[in-house]
């Protein structure tokens, strides 16, 4: 799929009922893509993400999600995600099923998904109440006899990430905190990458990785498409917005009014 408008990519690739992952570990979170999913009114999504933050709070509050698979759901450095809490505690705007893991388990599930394996293996999920509340099994190492944890791999229908830039062929380059961007893209049946800009030739950048065009689905040019998250080398994390979101999201009406003005009434990228 060539370089296309974001609205076209979401319309073609994201369907009601899909399992969708918009990944990003604080950095490069695909906010603009989440907003387009909200505008197009997708429903019954199973959302996967290690650290659901503001954009998942918005998608949950706008009724896009049926289930959330995650390991830490908060507003980093600020506090709760109030729309996530309202959905779990009060079923508003609808009930939200949770499948909860640890970071180590989610990371292993992403690596396994990218590797086309059915499960990931780790030393974890030992004791405590989490194992009884999630999908994990104990397996025995055939070589040493050690007991380990197995978690089912993540294989989303659609993986969506943001990156700094791509060339005209659709090769994608990203750097800074890399999170699970590569794993998310490789584990997914279909994928969308939003980028800050298209350039003629990808020049080397310290610490950068490249995702070749032939493993990338749609590439969409969305400048500031990660805001209020950030794109290393382009713009900083908007910490003031993360702080402000606490008050906006606390109240259902204030939340809806904010979404109406800043997302639903906005022009698609």
């Amino acid at each position: 799929m060539p370089i296309v408008p974001l609205s076209d990519a979401i319309r073609e690739l994201v369907h009601d009922g899909d399992t969708v992952a918009l990944e990003g570990f604080t950095h490069l979170i695909p906010h603009a893509a989440g907003h387009e999913i909200i505008r197009q009114g997708r429903r019954d999504l199973t959302l996967i993400r290690m650290t659901p933050d503001v954009v998942y709070d918005q998608m949950i509050g706008m009724g896009c999600a049926r289930k959330l698979v995650f390991s830490w759901g908060g507003n980093p450095g600020v506090g709760s995600l109030h729309r996530l809490r309202d959905a779990v505690e009060n079923g508003w705007p609808g009930p939200l099923e949770l499948e909860e893991h640890s970071h180590a388990g989610m990371a292993a599930a992403w690596s396994a998904g990218a590797s086309n394996l059915p499960f990931g293996v780790l030393r974890g999920y030992e004791g405590g109440d989490l194992p009884a509340r999630t999908r994990v099994a104990r397996i025995t190492c055939p070589f040493t006899g050690e007991e380990l944890a197995a978690v089912p791999s993540h294989r989303p229908d659609v993986g969506i990430v943001h990156s700094q830039r791509a060339d005209r062929h659709g090769n994608v380059q990203l750097w800074g905190i890399l999170g699970v961007q590569k794993e998310c893209l490789l584990a997914s049946a279909r994928s969308i990458v939003t980028v800050e800009e298209i350039i003629d030739e990808l020049t080397p950048v310290a610490g950068a990785i490249v995702l070749p065009a032939w493993v990338v689905g749609a590439v969409c040019v969305v400048p500031r498409g990660a805001h209020p998250s950030y794109a290393h080398g382009y713009y900083d994390r908007d910490n003031d917005f993360y702080l402000a979101w606490d008050a906006i999201s606390r109240d259902r009406d204030a939340f809806r009014a904010w979404m109406d003005e800043h997302v639903l009434a906005a022009v698609p990228a």
């Binding site: 640890s102 970071h103 180590a104």
Partner: peptide, 14 residues
């Protein structure tokens, strides 16, 4: 049916 849903374990268990 939690009274307060907290963010969750994140990296803590491991």
């Amino acid at each position: 049916r939690p009274a307060v849903r907290l963010p969750g374990g994140g990296g803590a268990p491991e």
